[in-house]
Design a protein around this nucleic acid. Structure first.
Ligand SMILES: [Mn+2]
Ligand SMILES: [Mn+2]
Ligand SMILES: [Mn+2]
Ligand SMILES: [Mn+2]
Lengths: 217, 217
DNA sequence: AAATAAAATTAGGCAACCCTAATAATTATA
DNA sequence: TATAATTATTAGGGTTGCCTAATTTTATTT
């Protein structure tokens, strides 16, 4: 139906749309896909012809309903495959994203549904990201970044936004994972870095940078 | 490492090499891949540069050791994924080939090994084709086409060479599957078609064409 | 051995995606 | 508001992998 490249653009535009209400510009998309704004413009033209995206110099890129559906379909496959790789094949959470990037493009109408069933209809992927159901509906979950939590609060980690191997390995080393229970002991005034206690474990320091990637409730 | 296209060429050349000692010509490869001899020559040049294939107008195409290794790696992945799709996701044997054609190209060093372990180290895929182990070694099995069996013989189906949906659905309808026990009742002189009794089931007619695709022992 | 048919090869192109360099349009800054 | 910096867009190319239409080899028939 859609090419691998088209699917990656749709997914990137979808993701950028999720992270706040910034204008989704060619430059932004190019950064997300690690390519060139000139290439992005080419593709936006094509996706426009296919009625998957509306692009407007002022408003930036927006998925049409059809485009959003296609994007969610890829996201669903990505996250289901991540669950498969972790639960069934025993990979760790920092190894699965890159493999899922390939698996998500396998085309077969009922593959995602069968995989979903085989995995027991999971609601979240191993990084805490919600898995859309077959109609594209996402389970709701209202979390906020650890960087916006006050001193003294006790919170639970429910999602890790940065899925890079480097960051996930760092969290492993710090003993932070999904469902970790954290208490904010201190927030440094000058750099907003945090001193956090991990329940039953040691206290650690987290930079603002890191805290922004850890979502809690 | 190798592109999707390159992998498909390697696999095709490997498969053609397995089916007897015909000369593997550009035309033959083009038919196998449903493309054009001119395109094949382009690719043979590239695979030659990469030391994966030796091509000689007289001898045809031959995989180098490196090329054979790469081909077996793709074949291994294809067949393991087929087992996964049938055993775990519940697809039927006529639906899995096309999906495995896509899955076989997913690149990750230890994916095949993990899948192999998860599936319980199967020796054969759902069509009876042997699955190479991680060193490329194939389990031996000496079968012959049903078309070469004599009248009166009692044999067991161990492999189906034609993996097309059409042929596999036809076999389903005839009630023939792997491990079916057959007795050859008659062979027609004029067209070599067979009258076969399926143990515990009815008698059926098979064309020579069909019998050539069914391997027994 | 010609003539004919089939197969291999070369030449020239095309579509998908990406890139760099040049230019135009915006936005920010002095 | 003129000047500088940043973005967007266009122009021109490159690569991969495919195709069609010659052209050349090789194999088959008369
Ligand atoms: Mn991921
Ligand atoms: Mn994830
Ligand atoms: Mn197959
Ligand atoms: Mn098979």
């Amino acid at each position: 139906m859609h090419s691998l490249s088209e699917e990656n653009y749709l997914k990137a535009i979808y993701r950028l749309g999720q992270e706040g209400d910034q204008k989704i510009s060619p430059t932004l998309i190019a950064e997300a896909l690690n390519n060139n704004p000139a290439s992005v413009i080419d593709m936006l033209k094509k996706l426009g012809d296919k009625k998957l995206v509306n692009y407007d110099k002022v408003k930036g890129a927006r998925l049409t309903e059809k485009g959003a559906k296609a994007a969610l379909d890829v996201v669903r496959k990505h996250r289901l495959w991540e669950v498969f790789l972790l639960d069934k094949l025993g990979y760790s959470w920092d190894e699965i994203h890159d493999i899922a990037e390939q698996l998500e493009h396998v085309q077969q109408s009922d593959l995602a549904d069968r995989l979903d069933k085989f995995l027991g209809y999971p609601d979240y992927d191993p990084h805490g990201d919600p898995i859309p159901d077959k109609n594209g509906k996402l389970p709701g979950k209202k979390s906020k970044p650890l960087s916006e939590v006050e001193v003294g609060a006790k919170v639970k980690v429910v999602l890790v936004a940065d899925n890079s191997t480097a960051f996930l390995k760092y969290l492993d080393k710090q003993n932070i994972g999904l469902n970790s229970l954290l208490t904010i002991k201190e927030i440094q005034e000058f750099d907003k870095s945090l001193l956090v206690e991990i329940k039953g474990k040691k206290e650690i320091f987290l930079s603002l940078e890191a805290a922004r990637q850890i979502f809690v409730e």
